[in-house]
């Protein structure tokens, strides 16, 4: 017999013979000595404890789910970052190309033949027939002003 059955079947006996009841004064039965009718007391339903294996499984599934979501999120961030990197690289390459094209343009614009052509044909400059060098004359000390 299980302890639960014993509780259902022998409630009075337990009351009578219980350790606590023995110490308290016995109550007079109600109704002129007649014993009160027995009633069925339903045991309070307590939640059943989960087995350790079930809990571990749920935890494992949860961890796997979290990890999977984290991996997917990381991969998404990584892909996003790589895409941004590729875009920036392309942009850098494009800027470098533009810079080099501008360098070439500067070199072309400053080439001697272009400068001469612009000077002669656009600005109307002419090559001088003579170049005169002026050399300072050293004055004697006496004639030099203070």
């Amino acid at each position: 017999m299980s302890p639960r059955q014993a509780t259902l079947d022998q409630p009075s006996r337990q009351l009578r013979s219980g350790g606590g009841a023995a110490a308290s004064p016995a109550r007079e039965p109600l109704g002129g000595g007649r014993a009160a009718p027995l009633r069925v007391v339903h045991p309070r339903r307590r939640p059943e404890r989960l087995r350790p294996s079930t809990a571990a499984s749920i935890l494992a599934v949860a961890v796997v789910l979290v990890v999977a979501i984290a991996v997917v999120a990381t991969q998404a961030l990584l892909a996003q970052g790589q895409f941004r990197l590729a875009t920036l690289r392309a942009s850098e390459s494009s800027a470098q190309s533009a810079h080099q094209r501008l360098e070439l343009q500067v070199a072309q614009l400053s080439s001697p033949q272009r400068i001469v052509w612009v000077a002669q044909h656009k600005l109307g400059m002419v090559v001088p027939n003579q170049v005169t060098y002026l050399q300072p004359v050293t004055l004697p000390r006496s004639s030099a002003r203070p």
């Binding site: 001697p112 400068i115 090559v127 027939n129 003579q130 170049v131 005169t132 060098y133 050399q135």
Partner: peptide, 23 residues
């Protein structure tokens, strides 16, 4: 010589013909 700023070595004022210079 003119481009490199080499001063004339002769004394007094001197002059000479030039070519088409670029700079």
């Amino acid at each position: 010589l003119r481009l490199m700023d080499v001063p004339p070595t002769s004394t007094g004022t001197s002059s000479g013909t030039t070519g088409a210079g670029a700079g």
